[in-house]
């Protein structure tokens, strides 16, 4: 297709959806009664319910069923696919890597975000300093991965130049496990710290000044202030940030795919899901991996939503 044809297709699909909205609005505009309101609300919700039903509800249920079937003749195999995840050595490696990602990324990213937020709070170049850390959030994980793959490059990368300069020699950084996993996690931390910093900085600004002043009059300062006033005051926000980054990390596959392609023992759940489902044609196992992601995300999300309500209630 030429560029012109593509633009035409894009205009057609936009027109299509606007037409649906317009038809619904025109057809229901004369309705006034109570029954009329039922018809109206149904019409207003119809496109949403169709899209959500077809795009989320049906596929989610279908995936759960698929995860209990075998791949070749679609026979029910009970928990076999799940058993594979927890017994196969490659899959166990994936689980171990995922655990590394999910434990390290939120903690380190939040810690760095918190420290930086405290350090630049009311500093002279606060806005600029914040933008520097936050910028990685705006770019794609593919872009971030390329930026860091270049840092880790064997020949012209910054890390190898540094290790050579201090006498530690050159290394094939991305090939040697398990450290290569940590190098990939650094990329995610680099992206997520900006998120943590922005949200926490807002929470720090919202700490009532009288609390801070009272503590200061009592002679609390420096690290003690941080430990006993700042951190307890923003505790709900800290938990929201931690859980949010946990969820994002569990679902992200872009970094692994772009930097190592899952080679050298670096695969994680979300990447393994992609490989098994769409590369190895192993839909049963892929579905089980997807369901596992869902099961792992679920309690974190519930906790996250509860804490977010607490933050909003303040």
């Amino acid at each position: 297709m030429s560029a012109g044809e593509k633009i035409l297709q894009a205009l057609i699909v936009i027109a299509l959806f606007f037409a649906v909205v317009a038809v619904i609005l025109v057809l229901t505009s004369r309705l006034r009664s109570r029954v009329g309101e039922y018809i109206q609300s149904t019409a207003f919700l119809l496109p949403t319910l169709i899209l959500i039903g077809v795009g989320l509800l049906y596929p989610a249920i279908s995936t759960i069923r698929l995860s209990f079937r075998n791949n070749f003749d679609k026979l029910w195999v009970g928990f076999d696919n799940y058993q594979t995840i927890f017994t196969d050595s490659d899959q166990l490696r994936v689980l171990f890597n995922t655990a590394l990602w999910v434990i390290i990324t939120p903690i380190v990213a939040t810690l760095i975000g918190l420290i930086y937020a405290v350090l630049v709070d009311r500093a002279r170049f606060e806005k600029f300093a914040k933008a520097l850390i936050f910028l990685p959030m705006a770019i794609s994980l593919v872009g971030a991965s390329l930026i860091w793959k270049f840092v880790y490059d064997d020949n012209v990368g910054l890390v190898n130049a540094a290790t050579e300069a201090i006498g530690l020699g050159r290394h094939h950084l991305l090939i040697n496990g398990p450290w290569n996993n940590l190098l990939l996690i650094v990329i995610m931390i680099w992206v997520q710290a900006g998120f943590a910093m922005t949200v926490l900085a807002a929470a720090i600004k919202a700490i009532p000044t009288d609390i801070v002043e009272a503590a200061r009059l009592d002679g609390v300062g420096g690290l003690k202030m941080f430990r006993f006033i700042t951190v307890p005051s923003i505790r709900p926000t800290l938990i929201v940030v931690l859980t949010t980054i946990t969820i994002t990390t569990l679902k992200a596959f872009d970094v692994v795919r772009t930097v190592t392609g899952g080679n050298f023992d670096t695969s994680v759940l979300a990447y393994e899901f992609y490989v098994q489902s769409f590369r190895s044609n192993n839909a049963g196992l892929g579905a089980a991996l997807a369901v596992l992601i869902f099961v792992l995300v679920l309690p974190v999300v519930i906790y996250n939503v509860r804490q977010m309500r607490k933050v909003a209630a303040r």
Binding site: E37, L56, Y58, P59
Partner: peptide, 27 residues
């Protein structure tokens, strides 16, 4: 608007936010 099942449907929509897109992709 007022209509039957309003709260149920809203909670359903809210809850579906948390479904990871991976879960929907194969089907």
């Amino acid at each position: 608007m007022q209509f039957p099942l309003k709260n149920f449907l809203f909670i359903l929509v809210f809850a579906l936010q948390i479904v990871p897109i991976q879960v929907t992709m194969i089907p």
